[in-house]
Write a protein that binds this DNA or RNA. Structure first.
Lengths: 339, 339
DNA sequence: TCTGATACCGAAAACCTTTACGGAAGCAGA
DNA sequence: TCTGCTTCCGTAAAGGTTTTCGGTATCAGA
């Protein structure tokens, strides 16, 4: 009972060979019913668990696998990324092992370490807000495990990645508002926390600049969780200003949903009084009333490509693969009045 | 180049021992720089890939893992189930390998086979619409792999499962409508395709029966995809009837979203003219206008328990574990007028 | 008594790698 | 010359299982 029982432990106890034990356990022919029963009995008693590694080794199996680390599997965008990854992984006979970092740095490192130790052929990771370049990539480099960053990226990172052009997406979104006559455009976002939030904020600023609108800090709100409630609260504050905004660009569709919720409850006409543009083209954006203008993010396609990049760099570690997906504006009801 | 290169192939070619090759590859000390370089060079040339199995075996590592098979990872409910599974799996040091069946029977079987061959310690599966009891469970039984069914279940199934009480949930939902004065209640659902849909349909019928309302086939609509568009179309048809319904209970929140969309576009007052109740308490239900009355489904909790059941049955295969989660009504705006 | 079939079992190789241990060679210092 | 240290390398065992090949025993039939 002490340590893990092996085939030979059973064999010795019963004075038979490991061959026979193996035969009994895998109910093959060429074995006496009594012997078999004895083996089965003892195996259960010793809580015998076959060693998968040994079996696979002997059977000449080989398994290719990739580890996927996501901040939040329940999040719509990431779940579509996962979907894309899985499609191409299965097409190429790779198992997909998934871990959730919950945006935590330590959890992320633990997963990377675990996956590497396990021996995955590669790692596809969407870094959490907290995570730092050195912590993650250094470990991966040292273990010589190919990896691809997804969605978020580190400042001086030069390796493989797939991401969407958040800067340009935000620029397009904001410009869209300006082109529709809005001049006082607020932003609710996560400015400093993660690269994605920062990129969108920067794109927003760029669009203002391009159109000769000066930045006004009073209508720029930081939100930490990018949830609906934050959008609601921020809108409340923004509309209470002496000089309230006539449009809001939010870092996320969820936040935009909060904005729209506030407007709905307080009879604020969207888009006439307040135009709203979100980000992600998540499911809710076409369900919410009014339907949300937003920026499309091709999660599934990104996942597919992330796998392809890993696969390519698996064969040729020298060349690096990088792709920034263009961002597309999807105009719905929340930003322009129906003609 | 023919077959997979091994340590000994490199060793023989260079007239050295496998020990030295191993040393070179894992850059240990005790090795001459020239030798090391030669090994590295040849290894690259032969495209040497170390055998993970052999390494792990030798290093006495052991990995516990579970395979999770879901019809659709991108679906909100399933992604929360996955979240729950992963939490408890990581807590108990199990890797989580995920596969998507896309509701396809063959894909499901392929995944089961793959996972079993791989040697997962257990399988957690949410069967797709198509899947049949025999196909799946027989295989699992034969391989002696513990498994637990999630969300959906087979007619004469007697093994481990976690699911939500769809029958009672639908009954509660329908009764709620009746209690609020509705008498002509339609149903849009997937009646025959999957157990879940059938259960909800049955619960709906039961509630009608309990309240002395006779079933009317003309206001029962079958939808195949449970997507928003189906809800929209079905509503259009239902409301065009001579004797249109005054309430609709849908199999899914998504379908309900379609109903609400139709109402919104055609100025039908919800809930006054038409009350709506969905199913799942998905994210959209609290975002949509009017907010959707629905039945709560605790995906995350279900996932957690599914893992726990597997874990328990791993140690004791005799006793079976079954849990049906109670269904809770969440009343929002779509079914009762705000008081 | 011999032949052949059948039922059961075991020795050893194979799967591929790492590692404990020891050995040889070279060189410096005494 | 001897001792001791360093540098490099190899032998063999170990990790746990499956499988090939063959062996013994028993019994029926001739």
């Amino acid at each position: 009972m002490s340590d893990k029982a092996r085939l030979i432990d059973i064999a010795r106890a019963l004075n038979i060979s490991t061959t026979t034990v193996s035969r009994a356990l895998n109910n093959k022919s060429d074995i006496n019913a009594k012997t078999k029963e004895a083996v089965l009995h003892l195996a259960k008693q010793l809580d015998y668990q076959p060693n998968k590694l040994a079996i696979s080794l002997r059977k000449k199996m080989s398994f290719k696998s990739i580890g996927v680390i996501l901040p939040n599997v329940g999040h719509y965008f990431f779940s579509t990324v996962l979907k894309g990854i899985m499609r191409n992984a299965h097409l190429n006979n790779h198992l997909v092992i998934v871990g959730e970092s919950a945006e935590s740095n330590s959890q992320e490192q633990k997963l990377v370490e675990e996956f590497v130790n396990y021996g995955v052929n590669g790692i596809l990771i969407a870094p959490g807000r907290e995570s730092k370049n050195e912590d993650i990539t250094a470990l991966l480099e040292s273990k010589r495990t190919p990896y691809v960053l997804m969605d978020r990226i580190f400042p001086n990172y030069t390796g493989n990645y797939v991401l969407s052009d958040d800067f340009k997406g935000a620029e397009i979104a904001t410009t869209h508002l300006i082109e529709n006559g809005k001049r006082r455009i607020a932003h609710i976002g996560s400015l400093h926390n993660c690269s994605v939030g920062y990129q969108r904020f920067s794109g927003y600023l760029s669009a203002l600049d391009n159109n000769g609108i000066s930045k006004d800090d009073s209508i720029i709100r930081e939100c930490l969780t990018t949830k609906m409630e934050e959008g609601y609260k921020a809108t409340q504050e923004l509309l209470a200003l002496e000089n309230p905004p006539d449009a809001i660009f939010t870092v996320t569709d969820d936040v935009a949903a909060g904005v729209l919720d506030y407007c709905h409850r307080h009879q604020i006409e969207v888009p006439k009084q307040l135009a709203v543009v979100g980000y992600s083209n998540s499911e809710l954006s076409s369900i919410i009333k009014p339907k949300l203008t937003t920026i499309e993010q091709k999660g599934e396609r990104m996942g597919e490509l992330a796998f392809d990049f890993f696969f390519a760099s698996y064969k040729d570690k020298e060349t690096i693969h990088q792709k920034t997906f263009e961002s597309k504006l999807i105009v719905r009801e929340s930003s322009v009045s129906i003609k």
